[in-house]
Design a protein around this nucleic acid. Structure first.
Lengths: 343, 343
DNA sequence: GACGATTCTCAAAGCGCTTTGGCAGATCGA
DNA sequence: TCGATCTGCCAAAGCGCTTTGAGAATCGTC
């Protein structure tokens, strides 16, 4: 059923039917009622491509999700971010287009999307330090919003981010307040902007407490359980092991716990762990009592907001750049305790 | 830069330029070379909507990913499945459209996709027992492929699935061979087809060994770490606790391990654990030596294959239904051992 | 009752592409 | 040399929608 058929059935012109359906004022309310009813009855829905062609709007947002070329890892936070964004899109009548892409191919994909015209804007994921994609998107004139920020990038752009620096500052201070002095940092890949900020927050808190960060206690890698386990096992085998770990994701924390238990130590008593928690739906930090002490911010909520912001930016291009800084909240769980007395 | 402008620049008609670019034979090779070169130089790419409108093909595949309405959980395997499918799509020049949807809304979404015409086909995720979506898609005539199967559904359809029944049969037999007699099953939600098959395989192996499955040892829920922990803690507190767990995902297994360790037992010695492993990129079962004994099948590979199959089904609708049954492979890790002698 | 204002509806153009049908000019066989 | 066949190109229609510009019909007003 297309517009032509529907209008013939109603004995009206395509124009009138189209206007009636799209809420234009110059159509009799009685006529509109008839049209809307007929459309509902025949399950008519305008063809998205034709509509897009006529209006010049794709009613779709693109997400380019990078795959770490070396490790072939898909960051698990995408599932939840996408779920959040998807909610906002379906409310606003937008579709979501996803391209999974090797890191180096991203700019080509943006260019393609622009010239193929199948999206009205894109969300940029996992921004790196001084990320070239931002300038690139500016250049080709495709509206976009960054999930995260890119330090060193001096062009204005819209973004939504968590205050990663403050989150890690608070987490580190919490451990320092418990008396910990040797704190290991298991960070995400430090070409990523969020990881840089987290490290800065961590180091800052240490220095404020008069402690010089020890490079031997700071590691950075893809945020997997395996990394957490390996790095923690190594750290615990040091002559002077850390008494606490500050880690960048629950998956890392799970690996750390495994290493702690393999060392016949008890988490929360012998060794403290604080983690960053994206509040992933399938990886909740305990059902009732949190397992890990954590700084938490829901990545799903971030997805919801990101989509809303981008949509409104597209709706009114004259708007200034939008940004939003979310604060992570600290919740105390069972994984932290005062520094144990030396035996 | 659109076709008209490009053809004017070249002093050719739109027809010729279009044919040259699309590889039609009735154009001089020399002319084609010129056209292709000019297109490359001006970074010309045909507008996707216009092309779709003209050809009637959207060059896009839809994925409807359901959110469990009760728990708001996004199944983490989607990230990897999508990554795999995305690879095949970009090779074939297809886009991927994703809708995140509350369970009950799915059929409306399929209907929308069909009438809006923004996809050429869809992948159906998480099929349930006797899933109504299959009949529905048949009815509206939208090509589709099911990731999994739907027992009780008597219509023919294309699918790709793991041999879940055999996987759990083998896993259970492995435990039985080690002497385990009380084996707990922590299964996925049993309205899901895969969970039903897994349970059948499990029960089958037990019965073959002359053991009647004990309902008190079989649990079914969303596959989270929390579920694994809770269910395992409860089971271990039974007067006659199980000596082994067979679980449906690594996340559950991680929860089980936590419960085991909280009970001051050692996994692999006191209690054995076998898990199903989707080979998720961010949740590898150990880097070198597998942590858990597991039956494994890569969901990413399944995504790749699913996309390929659907694309070829769309390319040639006269093809009979395609299907593909993948076998999971058993890898022995550190989480299993012979049943301990009663103290 | 005539006139302008208002309300409702329509025909047609246009979005950017593919594809049909056809037309010159070159090539070939007899 | 002439008609038949190919080759290489083109004009125009059509995909399904929105939107412009305009025309009928209705209304209120003097």
């Amino acid at each position: 059923m297309n517009l032509k058929q529907l209008s013939e059935k109603l004995g009206l012109s395509q124009t009138t039917v189209s206007r009636a359906l799209n809420g234009y004022p110059e159509v009799n309310e009685e006529t509109r009622r008839r049209v809307v009813e007929a459309a509902r009855q025949h399950d008519y829905r305008p063809n998205a491509r034709a509509k897009g062609l006529a209006t010049g709007r794709a009613m779709a947002i693109g997400h380019v999700i990078p795959i770490s070329a070396k490790f072939e890892i898909v960051n698990p936070i995408f599932a939840d971010f996408i779920a959040g964004a998807g909610e906002s899109y379906s409310k606003a009548g937008y579709d979501m287009l996803i391209s999974v892409v090797r890191n180096d191919d991203e700019e080509r994909v943006y260019r393609d999307m622009k010239s193929k015209g199948n999206v009205d804007g894109v969300i940029v994921h996992s921004p790196r330090l001084n990320d070239s994609r931002i300038g690139h998107l500016h250049e080709i004139g495709l509206p976009f919003l960054v999930h995260g920020r890119s330090s060193g990038c001096d062009i204005g752009y819209s973004w939504i981010d968590v205050n990663n620096r403050r989150a890690f500052e608070r987490a580190a201070r919490f451990l320092l307040d418990l008396g910990h002095r040797r704190i290991a940092l298991l960070n995400g890949p430090e070409m990523m902007d969020f990881a840089i900020r987290r490290r800065a927050g961590f180091e800052n808190a240490l220095r404020e407490a008069g402690i010089e960060p020890d490079p031997a206690l700071m590691h950075s890698a893809e945020m997997t359980e395996g990394f957490g386990h390996r790095a923690a096992a190594e750290a615990l085998a040091l002559p002077e092991p850390p008494t606490a770990f500050l880690v960048a994701s629950i998956l890392i924390a799970i690996g750390v716990r495994r290493a702690i238990e393999e060392s016949r130590l008890t988490m929360g008593r012998d060794i403290s762990v604080v983690t960053y928690d994206d509040d992933l739906s399938y990886l909740r930090n305990g059902d009732d009592i949190p397992i890990f002490t954590a700084v938490r911010s829901s990545v799903r909520e971030a997805g919801r907001l990101a989509a809303e912001m981008l949509i409104s930016a597209i709706a009114d291009p004259s708007l200034p750049h939008l940004d939003r800084l979310l604060e992570a909240e600290l919740t105390v769980g069972q994984s932290t305790g005062p520094v144990p007395v030396r035996s």
